[in-house]
């Protein structure tokens, strides 16, 4: 409810620049939230998540260049691409864990990056792709900031709902079980590779949907959206927002992107800010801003109950 109210208020009040900025937060936040399914619920720390997101973004951009920006078609392309790369990555990583998983996802993600970077005919190489056609839905052309922002908001809400339903479903519970007690899970007859593979597919599809919209915010896509440093950035956003809370992902991406956008206007040291906030979060708020806010809310509720 609060989220819907906030989105509509922003849509009415914010200007062109801010709406695009908010759309970017929502889209990146959606991708970070899909990473939360892996990290927060599966204990699978992937350094290759940007490859799912970025590959989907490129697929959507290339598809739009050749076949136009029909929204449903573009979303479908992104979801398919995200799920496909996730399936490849999933097939490789299902039997590994911990540092091996970290390194394998990093290697696979970088392979995708190398392909994107060197396949100049299709991807534009280091320059990326510019001049994309705007998205369209039926007779409407979604080129100005307001519809793009609303689209990103709908995507975020839908993805959040989907992720919640996944986590609450038996499959999501099994994922938590595989993180907490993998040996017991196999002793209960669960196939852990299967749980992980299915989760990768879901996370890839959500990241792919987010990736599909990403190029159309600024009508540009570049190779840095596939690079592992974006994967690491996503992890930073996730931790600041709160691992395992799902909605914290949006909070984290908002904080990170706000620092990047606003602090960098005043000083070159914005990365220092991000790093310090990140370290302080790890030291002081192990459950991130979402966990901190939740604790604050319950403390206030208790105080109010005491006064009453």
């Amino acid at each position: 409810m609060v989220a819907v109210a906030g989105l509509s208020a922003a849509a009415l009040l914010a200007g062109e620049f801010h709406l695009r900025f908010l759309a970017e937060i929502l889209i990146i936040g959606t991708a970070v939230m899909s990473l939360d399914l892996l990290v927060g619920f599966g204990g699978l720390v992937s350094l290759g998540h940007a490859a799912l997101f970025g590959a989907a973004a490129y697929a959507a951009a290339v598809a739009a260049q050749h076949l136009g920006g029909n929204l449903l078609f573009i979303l479908g392309t992104g979801i398919a691409m995200g799920a496909a790369v996730a399936a490849l990555m999933g097939a490789v990583i299902v039997r590994t864990s911990s540092l091996f998983l970290l390194i394998l996802t990093l290697l696979l993600g970088q392979i995708v990056w190398e392909i994107v970077f060197h396949w100049r005919d299709v991807t534009g190489g280091a320059d990326g792709l510019r001049g994309l056609p705007p998205l369209s839905f039926g007779p409407w052309v979604l080129s100005s900031a307001r519809p793009l922002f609303l689209l990103a908001g709908l995507l975020a809400l839908a993805a959040l709902w989907l992720a919640h339903s996944f986590v609450d479903a038996p499959l999501g519970r099994a994922l938590i079980g595989s993180r907490e007690q993998p040996i017991r899970m196999s002793a209960l007859g669960y196939s852990i590779p299967r749980i992980r593979f299915l989760t990768m597919l879901v996370a890839g599809a959500i990241a792919g949907a987010a990736g599909a919209l990403y190029p159309f915010v600024n009508l540009y896509i570049g190779p840095q959206s596939v690079h592992w440093t974006l994967s690491a950035t996503m992890i930073i956003m996730l931790v600041i927002g709160g691992v395992g809370s799902l909605w914290g992902a949006f909070l984290g991406s908002a904080v990170y992107l706000a620092i990047q956008t606003y602090i960098s206007a005043y000083t070159d040291r914005w990365q220092l800010f991000v790093g310090l906030i990140f370290v302080l979060t790890v030291l002081l708020l192990p459950n991130g801003l979402a966990g901190g806010l939740r604790r604050l809310a319950s403390r206030m509720r208790r105080r109010r109950a005491q006064q009453a």
């Binding site: 996944f166 499959l171 999501g172 519970r173 209960l188 299967r194 299915l198």
Partner: peptide, 16 residues
């Protein structure tokens, strides 16, 4: 306990 009971009922990995 439900983790085991669902697996027994054949719905351990269902989603919906």
């Amino acid at each position: 306990i439900a983790m085991a009971a669902r697996q027994r009922a054949g719905v351990g990995l269902r989603w919906g």
